[in-house]
């Protein structure tokens, strides 16, 4: 990828990821790229720590298999040198029932030599799970949690 600012590189990465443009996404990342999604891997086995650029194509393939449309809106971006953090609102349309999943996502990037080396992906996995299942899990648990916190 031609030399660009950390901000431009991260925006190109996000644009490419949601467009399903593997070549563009890979061009934004270092050979030793690592990605860590903070969520329970026993429920989301494709989350957790992944290493190498080849994971990017796999991640896009998994999402494209499950979702017929994917888009995002950038709500917040903070930049300090070679470190960038974003809040995005991701919108994913499920293939099996057409329902749209809306998620607020935080991403933290560390760049080196103009390319992304580390990616930390952070989301509310309970919110994701409820939307994927199409079921409110919080209602039956709410009374117990409120009791436990009282």
């Amino acid at each position: 990828m031609a030399a660009c600012s950390a901000r431009e590189c991260v925006v190109a990465f996000l644009d490419g990821f949601y467009a399903g443009d593997i070549a563009r996404v890979e061009a934004c990342c270092d050979e030793n790229f690592t990605s860590l999604t903070h969520s329970p891997v026993e429920i989301f086995p494709h989350h957790g720590l992944k290493t190498g650029k080849e994971w990017l194509a796999e991640a896009i393939r998994i999402q494209q298999e499950r979702f017929s449309a994917r888009s995002y809106a950038l709500h917040f971006i903070a930049v300090e040198g070679q470190r960038v953090a974003t809040i995005t609102r991701a919108s994913l349309t499920k293939r099996n029932d057409g329902r749209v999943i809306d998620l607020t996502v935080a991403d933290f990037f560390v760049l080196g030599g103009g390319l992304i080396r580390e990616h930390h992906h952070f989301l509310d996995s309970l919110d994701l799970l409820q939307q994927l299942l199409g079921r409110d899990l919080t209602e039956p648990l709410a009374a117990s949690v409120r009791g436990a916190m009282r």
Partner: peptide, 25 residues
């Protein structure tokens, strides 16, 4: 101010037991 939490983890700890869920999603 915007704060994102993984409330899955938070709920399990507040309840003191795991949330019973399907095996994988």
């Amino acid at each position: 101010l915007r704060v994102l939490l993984d409330t899955f983890d938070l709920v399990e700890q507040a309840l003191g037991h795991p949330i019973h869920l399907p095996a994988t999603v």
